[in-house]
Simulated scan of single mutants.
Amino acid sequence: MLKSSFPPVVAPNTRLLVLGSLPGDRSLAEARYYAHPQNQFWRLMSPVVGRDLHTLPYEDRLAALLARGIGLWDVVASAHRPGSTDAAIRDIAGNDIAALATSLPELQAIAFNGATAAKHGTRLLAGLEIERIALPSSSPLHTVGLAAKQPAWDALKPFVIPGLSRDPG
């Protein structure tokens, strides 16, 4: 079955772009990034932005990321994939992440959520000089626990817009 990614979630002040591979079936069904309740993305990003994203409504999660200079997208524009595992992705058409990256004047780094995103994203960014950060996957299929993944994800903190007050909401 051919599956396609969502549009990028970015703003002119995006300093960090976090790229996944391709949304899973639950995310596609709900038209939301990282919609599967066992995916650890929102929990991993919470300490990075200094706010509990997991408990917020989806639109507020996105707004909180954008307010801190963090954008989201996927490396894969479309591919055939039965189910949700990255290992099953075939016939990949990549997103033009290099064009997006060059359109963001404050972009300082691109982070890859998992090995598949890093593998294909690195190829799509060939020739573009920008810091790249490989992260352990937030997927529940990646069996490393949240606590073991968090230090790698905490490396994103320097790219978050400094000096913004934490919204207690």
Rank of each mutant, 00 (worst) to 15 (best):
V76W: 02
L146W: 05
P168C: 14
R90Q: 14
V75I: 13
R123C: 07
L28D: 10
E106H: 07
L19A: 05
R132Y: 05
D91G: 11
L135R: 02
P105Q: 01
R32T: 05
S4H: 07
L22S: 11
A147S: 10
P7M: 08
I92C: 03
F159Y: 15
I130C: 01
A87L: 11
L44G: 03
T85R: 15
A64V: 06
R51E: 11
L44F: 00
S165T: 15
D91Q: 15
G20C: 11
A77T: 01
A117T: 00
A111T: 10
W73G: 15
K119Q: 13
Y58S: 11
Y34S: 12
Y58P: 04
Y34H: 13
H142C: 13
L128S: 08
V160A: 13
L28W: 07
K149F: 04
Q40C: 09
L2G: 01
A117Q: 01
V160E: 07
P158A: 08
S27M: 00
R166F: 01
Y58I: 10
R32H: 08
E129Y: 01
L164K: 14
S138M: 12
T122F: 00
K3V: 11
A118W: 04
D86A: 15
N13S: 11
H80Y: 06
P8T: 09
D52P: 10
L44R: 03
L164E: 15
R166P: 02
A31W: 05
L53E: 06
L125Y: 08
R132H: 04
L62P: 04
L125P: 04
I161G: 07
Q108G: 06
A87R: 15
G24K: 00
R15D: 06
L135F: 01
V75P: 10
V49L: 12
A147Y: 01
V75D: 08
E131K: 12
G163A: 03
G83C: 02
F6R: 06
A98L: 05
A29C: 06
I133R: 07
R26C: 13
A87P: 09
A63H: 09
H120N: 13
T122Y: 01
G145H: 12
A64Y: 03
L53W: 01
Q40H: 06
P57G: 09
L72N: 13
P151W: 04
D96I: 04
L164F: 12
W42D: 03
G83K: 03
E30Q: 14
Q108E: 11
T14W: 02
V76I: 15
L16N: 04
L141Y: 13
R51D: 01
G145L: 08
A29Q: 14
R26D: 12
A67K: 14
F41P: 05
E129G: 06
R123M: 10
F159I: 09
I130S: 03
S27Y: 03
L22A: 05
L53A: 05
Q38M: 14
E129C: 10
S46E: 10
P23L: 07
G163K: 10
L16V: 08
P82L: 12
S4I: 00
E30A: 09
W153T: 10
I92V: 15
A31L: 13
A88M: 15
S165K: 11
F6A: 08
V18H: 05
